[in-house]
Design a protein around this nucleic acid. Structure first.
Lengths: 223, 223
DNA sequence: CTACATACCAATAAAATATTGGTATGAATA
DNA sequence: TATTCATACCAATATTTTATTGGTATGTAG
């Protein structure tokens, strides 16, 4: 067995046994060559083999890393979190989410729907607001994913990010009485039922009604 | 007149006459003091006055700049430009823009509508695709602005950013025959007419039809 | 009281240096 | 002849160092 092949094996082993964790950075070529007691050019040949097998990736000036090279950095877009307000956010949600429900009614998989049902059960059983909110969020998100439009999902998540803000959080907390939660749970069940039976029109209508209820509860009581 | 007041006057004059352009950086306090032949502490008093009047802003380590301090850096969200596709983008546009038109029909100002009309005239008169596209973009943008929802405008702009991509640009170029442009111009006029007469239902319907025409021309001819 | 000169500090920008992978070359060894 | 080694150099990137900037404080002079 050649020097190179020995190095390939040893590096393979070190990666497999977790000595070099996934996504972690390996030592530099110069120090790794010294550590394995081979020349740097031999090491480079071994690394090239491992890279071609998808075990690691290398980048000039950065280093050598375990695993697959991360996807190209996404573009980013500015989000006017400090300039918008709850009313605008609800208005946007009322535009997006009923249409998301239409697409979800057409495109949801059995797995999607199973998870939606899980969210319903967990949300219904929640003992505090934070838990309820978490499952509420998860439900809306899986519906958005079920729409199967990457861009639309990104926009949905951006809107959610704005909702996550502190000023908004206080409104949520004060609004979510037990009575209202019960009503939202019923509305959630109806939405998921409509999606499951592939009824796009009902999905849209029920989502719109749910969001109007949320909006009215939130805005009328406090403004 | 005191030394400080003289400095305030002189700096005021230099800013007003454009010697220090809007948003540009002034020389450092040390060199400005030397230039005006006053002490740095006197200059600082003059700068403080001008800053309190909104003429300029100062930041430790960065410098002194003409005009108002820019808004705090927005939060950003990732935009999946490399993961979406023309079909998804059109689907999202068909969700957003008809609803934007509804809001614009309710909320557009006379100034908005005047500018919409200007876009129509300029788009109609365009002699090449790039110019037409520019006025097309400006029209859609002023409609989105007329909806008067900051968050919705941000989402609209995000979708536009994705549209601006190279792979997308080629599709646009091949699709825009003279005949099609003529048809789009007519559709644009109808959309603006509906917005102007505050007819939300027609605005929505006409926008949807326009976008469907664009989508069909774009996707059917090439896929 | 105003203005000046000077010293020092925190925040930021710019410049310099170090580190990383990539390529090339020539010599030694099996 | 193929493999391995040692060495040199370069481009890309990261880190460190130095310079610059506004901010504050102090003491002196008019």
């Amino acid at each position: 067995m050649s020097s190179k092949e020995l190095a390939v094996s040893e590096l393979h082993r070190l990666i497999r046994n977790g000595h070099y964790a996934p996504q972690s950075q390996l030592p530099s070529e110069r120090s790794l060559a010294e550590q394995l007691q081979i020349s740097r050019s031999t090491l480079r040949k071994a690394l090239a083999t491992l890279e071609s097998e998808g075990e690691l990736w290398r980048h000039v000036g950065r280093g050598t890393f375990v695993g697959k090279c991360p996807a190209v950095e996404s573009e980013v877009f500015p989000l006017p979190a400090d300039l918008t307000n709850p009313s605008e956010v609800m208005e946007v949600r009322l535009i997006l989410e009923p249409e998301i429900a239409v697409l979800a009614a057409h495109r949801a998989t059995k797995t999607d729907i199973t998870f939606m049902r899980q969210c319903l059960v967990k949300g219904d059983a929640a003992r505090d607001t934070a838990t309820f909110e978490m499952w509420d969020g998860a439900l809306h998100r899986v519906i958005a994913e079920a729409a199967r439009n990457t861009l639309l999902l990104a926009l949905f998540q951006a809107v959610n990010a704005v909702r996550g803000h502190a000023i908004w959080g206080e409104l949520k907390e004060a609004t979510l009485t037990k009575q209202r939660r019960k009503r939202y749970v019923v509305q959630h069940y109806n939405m998921v039922n409509a999606i499951e039976r592939r009824d796009a029109v009902d999905s849209q209508r029920l989502t719109r009604e749910h969001l109007k209820a949320v909006r009215d509860d939130m805005l009328n009581k406090h403004y």
